[in-house]
């Protein structure tokens, strides 16, 4: 399809508008790209970002027993994480229902309901503001992550 669009543009104008994504994955991919230089599925094992969608795909890492811990961050959807043998830490939308209880569940508020924030549209181009609509008293996922980072001390940050 890209080749067809390129060919047509030699004589007239033509474009495609790729749409897709849900549950914040476009947003995560954008932020991953500007912070690390790569889309999601980046490993930091060697101290620098390495992009490898196959080797760093979470599903494969879990299936083949290469992971020691699953940290599941999901503030938009109440869908639970995949079931796995390794300990699971969930920083997830309050109300998430589990068929297998995770070792740790920290319920958090939802951006656009409990907190302000930003989110990319499905065109992956325009980011929109999310507004706070209520004060539900729930913590913000980013603050939870920051607190964990601080508790681990400067050496591990």
């Amino acid at each position: 399809m890209c080749k067809a669009i390129v060919a047509i543009n030699q004589v007239t104008r033509c474009a495609a508008l790729p749409l897709g994504g849900q549950e914040g994955d476009r947003t995560a991919s954008q932020v991953a790209a500007w912070i690390s230089g790569f889309p999601t599925r980046v490993g930091y094992l060697q101290g620098f970002p390495e992009y490898d969608p196959y080797h760093y795909g979470a599903e494969r890492l879990l299936l083949e027993g290469e992971a020691d811990l699953l940290v599941w961050v999901s503030t938009l959807s109440t869908n639970p994480p995949p079931e796995t043998q390794v300990p699971t830490l969930v920083i997830g939308r309050s109300g998430m229902v589990f068929s297998k209880e995770p070792e740790v569940f920290i319920p958090v508020g939802v951006p656009g309901i409990d907190f302000s924030g930003h989110m990319y549209r499905c065109d992956n181009v325009v980011a929109l503001p999310l507004y706070q609509l209520r004060d539900g008293g729930l913590p913000k996922a980013s603050n939870v992550l920051k607190a964990i980072e601080e508790a681990m001390g400067p050496e591990s940050s």
Partner: peptide, 20 residues
């Protein structure tokens, strides 16, 4: 991605990792 793969910047001291 080659611009980043060829120029990785490991985290060091206060600096977080990056690339490019």
């Amino acid at each position: 991605p080659e611009d980043h793969r060829n120029d990785p910047v490991p985290r060091s001291g206060l600096k977080r990792a990056g690339a490019g």
